[in-house]
Design a protein around this nucleic acid. Structure first.
Lengths: 231, 231
DNA sequence: TGTACATCAGTGAACGCGCGTTCACTGATGTAC
DNA sequence: TGTACATCAGTGAACGCGCGTTCACTGATGTAC
């Protein structure tokens, strides 16, 4: 479907507004996002922005969805660029892309995984599906490795706590992913690992101690892949 | 040193102000903290608060210092309650206390490790020392285990990346802790693990999937202690 | 190809709101004699 | 033990500021003939 000149321009300006919002959040913090400040920066009056977003909360929602998708796209693209039968390489690429994207877009990361913005209540049905895509990349490539008989979760993950296993099974049934609970468990575990590493990195808690956060991350990821038993 | 009745009362009200601030942050988010709202809640006019804090930023600083100390105290107390020669038990107790404190004080945790509050710039010389106390609990008990000949870091931690090792050594020299770089590395690694687990838990990202966050955390911590080689 | 008009991007004034902070003040209270 | 006074907690008005959002409007521009 083709956009008219006017629609095209409209979309472009929507993008410019979001970019300005991101710049502003990067400078002042996610909670300081303000329509008036964006308008000021764009040399336009504040009411003009209402041509593009119904209100402040809709702008925030758009930024959140963009952020989830940006992160997922980056991970998916990196994973897809690896040879299909190199399962360790595929997961490694995804996890490296995760770090790279966060370093390039720290504000977006704070927006989706940091403290909520006061007064903002997002529409769950819009944001939740976008948020899950990143983990599908990890879960599905592990699932393929398993299906290909190239890999198995280490024995200990067959001994996860009963309550947890039961809940994972329920979720898997609900969502319909063709993976066993042990693999979903691993996905959640991987998530907590990389999330901890990156949150402490972007808020500058670990870098002053470890010096090279890149080497720190790589070393931790390597150990993680070994631990999981990916060859 | 004894406090006069007036000084005593002054201190009590300072505490009440901080408690009200914590309640407010819990309800509206850390970034929504406001002197006027606190005053309103306390049935007092806003200027009255200036008898107790020179300004909004000083109140925030006080809350931050309290939070760091609260977390460190909780961990230290739990660790100290274990038999001195049960090194695994000591570390386990500290890590369990870490989770328990965060669940009891999620707002304080967001305040010290989450997104910074727009417009607030804290005095590093006040907050940094308080922030390090939690990790001394971990680092020093591992150090004692090592000194007692009861434990050694697994071999792989002698093979950490050269840049990281060099930096850790520099920090150790600077601060004067009697532990090798491999142990400091483990402290940082443990931190990223528990931080990732707890951040995703309090923001409700993992609980909907794993069901019982308590069992999830315990299982992960058990694996961690095994991995570190603590018996 | 030229023109008339409907569309819609952007303006400027205004609304009601909350914020941190200052200032001169009042009046209760703990303390020193 | 009783009293006089200095101290200081808290008030109320005011400051200048920024916010999101609404409304009636103007004037440029893309589109349909």
């Amino acid at each position: 479907m083709k956009l008219s000149k006017r629609e095209q321009l409209h979309d472009d300006i929507r993008e410019r507004i979001k970019d300005t919002a991101r710049t502003q959040m990067a400078a002042e913090g996610t909670a300081a996002l303000s329509l008036r400040a964006i308008a000021r920066e764009m040399d336009v009056t504040a009411p003009a922005l209402y041509r593009y977003f119904p209100g402040r909360d809709d702008l925030i929602t758009a930024l959140i969805v963009d952020a989830f998708n940006g992160l997922a796209d980056a991970m998916a693209a990196a994973e897809a660029a690896q040879p299909r039968d190199d399962f360790r390489g595929r997961l490694l690429a995804a996890l490296m892309a995760y770090r790279a994207w966060i370093l390039q877009n720290p504000t977006d990361y704070q927006l989706i995984y940091g403290n909520p913005i006061p007064g903002y209540e997002g529409p769950r049905e819009t944001t939740v599906p976008a948020s899950q895509r990143s983990f599908e990349v990890i879960g599905l490539s592990l699932g393929e490795a398993l299906a290909a008989g190239q890999w198995q979760p280490p024995a200990i993950y067959s001994a996860i706590p009963a309550q947890v296993e039961a809940h994972l099974l329920m979720i898997l049934e609900l969502v319909g992913y063709p993976i066993p609970p042990s693999v979903l468990y691993l996905v959640m575990m991987i998530w907590t690992r990389i999330h901890g590493l990156m949150t402490l990195e972007i808020f500058d808690h670990t870098p002053p101690v470890v010096g090279s956060s890149e080497h720190f991350y790589q070393f931790e990821i390597t150990k993680l892949l070994d631990e999981i038993g990916l060859k």
